[in-house]
Amino acid sequence: MSNLAIEAKNVRKRFGAHDVLQGVDLAVPEGSIYALLGPNGAGKTTLIHILSTLVEPDEGMVRICGHELAAASMVKRSISLTGQFAAVDEVLTARENLTMAGRLCGLTRAEARARAEELLARFDLESAADKRVRTYSGGMRRRLDLAISLVTPRPVLFLDEPTTGLDTMSRRTLWDLIRSLKRQGVTVFLTTQYLEEADQLADTIAVLDGGRIVATGTASELKTRLGDEVLELRDGRGSLIRTLSTDGSLQDIRQQLNELAASVPPDTRIAIRKPSLDDVFVALTAQEKERRSS
């Protein structure tokens, strides 16, 4: 028990008529990166808000570093949240943002200043340290946002879609930062819409759909559910007819196409690609529906 950083049992949340979370269970081991994958509206942000004390669940048990949510001040001392909208003060400079966060986390003025200096250097924000955050690029904002979360060390870090809207370079920089946190023993719980992100970072991926965790596993475990490659069949006008899973071998592809040959028009175009998040969802939600109906 003691080696779970985050533990949740049967977490439910309803907003009006909308059942956002319908009984979520989680077990996140200390020092791991856990990715919550799901489409828009799956309930990812609600779940992260519940885990980080922002929203009260209607039902269920949550324990962060052994503290139940009712002990909110203990939980808050163990966590740090980097929300979906970079939670930085735009009118202040990066240095002021970091110093302010340091003071709020109980550092003295001198400690807060020193810590800000340290983080500015480590997050490559020194050259812009005294510019107002309003002038920053998306990548710089996210780096600052993450830096603010690390002003005082917390064992659990929540990141809500940390790289949404970033360019490839900024995304990779952020991934490196997240990996280095893990090496220092921080438990990272992140949400993402990108399979690649979960794939690159996470020790465990949970797929949230329709308010439930529909699958949990490592990236490779999830992908093998789909096969290694996807065959995409489009008609002459380019609209998708169907997709097929394949292991990518000539033998498998030939066999599948032979079986199909009679049922599709001769001008059908074929493309082979890696499974996308869409495919994972289509497959997982289909399985989920089947499981429920049987």
Binding site: S73, R77, C105, G106, E118, P155, S180, Q184
Partner: peptide
């Protein structure tokens, strides 16, 4: 590369807070 000040993670780890 980035390194964050080393700390021990664990349930007993708690940060200070401002008055």
């Amino acid at each position: 590369m980035m390194t964050i000040r080393q700390h021990q993670s664990g349930p007993q780890q708690t940060a200070k807070s401002a008055s």
